[in-house]
């Protein structure tokens, strides 16, 4: 069984300590990161997604420590940050293929998979349109969709349902729960939503500590 372990993780920006001594082992299933705004949820998610390095402590993927195991982890990672500077002049499909190429995926298969994911979240009709014409909610769904490309074993999603209406949020939640059956899915949210009952763990981040 896959596992992603954090041991004594701390993260500081200058003198500002954002996370202090966080330890947890993630296993397949849904883990929610909750807490007030500015508590450090997104920072913890970025550490899990290898977008940042901890100031102290170690991350291990399947018991192999990072940074040695970073390339292996990235090969099976899907990450949706809260905000991405999307290339406005590309269509959603072109952008997704760009990400698929960077993930080393077969482009024709990734194209089909992207069609299926966007169909499930109500974005498929617009995938040939330029991102410049997208609303905030459509952009959010596109960022979400690219994270699911391939068969990621670790999926890190930062506030995936923010800015979405209730029905669309439910569609995303259904996909998240589907993926959580086999993958480690870590989702930050500052709201208790419908995902909570299905979570194998809920970590509350507050004042740099995790409870």
């Amino acid at each position: 069984m896959s596992s992603l372990a954090l041991a004594g993780i701390a993260k500081s920006y200058g003198r500002k300590v954002v996370l202090a001594d966080v330890s947890h082992t993630f296993t397949p299933g849904l883990t929610l990161l909750t807490g007030p705004s500015g508590a450090g949820k997104s920072t913890l998610l970025r550490l899990i997604a290898t977008a940042e390095r901890p100031t102290r402590g170690t991350l291990s993927w399947n018991e192999a420590r990072l940074p040695d195991a970073r390339a292996r982890l990235r090969r099976v990672l899907g990450y949706a940050p809260q905000a991405v500077d999307l290339p406005e002049d590309l269509t959603a499909r072109e952008f997704a293929m760009h990400i698929a190429a960077l993930k080393g995926l077969s482009l024709s298969a990734a194209d089909k998979q992207f069609g299926a994911i966007t169909d499930a979240i109500g974005l498929h009709a617009d995938i040939n349109n330029r991102i410049a014409s997208f609303s905030g909610g459509m952009r959010r769904r596109l960022i979400f969709a690219q994270a699911l490309l391939g068969a990621p074993e670790v999926i890190a999603l930062d506030e995936p349902t923010a800015e979405l209406d209730g029905e669309t949020a439910r569609k995303l939640s259904a996909l998240i729960l589907e993926r959580a059956k086999t993958a480690i899915v870590v989702v930050t949210t500052h709201l208790a939503d419908e995902l909570a009952p299905h979570a194998v763990a809920t970590l509350r981040v507050r004042d740099g500590a995790v409870a």
């Binding site: 080393g104 482009l107 498929h124």
Partner: peptide, 14 residues
């Protein structure tokens, strides 16, 4: 866009 196949398999590494 091409018709979506809801049963499309996850893309494998090239």
């Amino acid at each position: 866009p091409p018709r979506a196949d809801p049963h499309a398999k996850a893309a494998r590494h090239a």
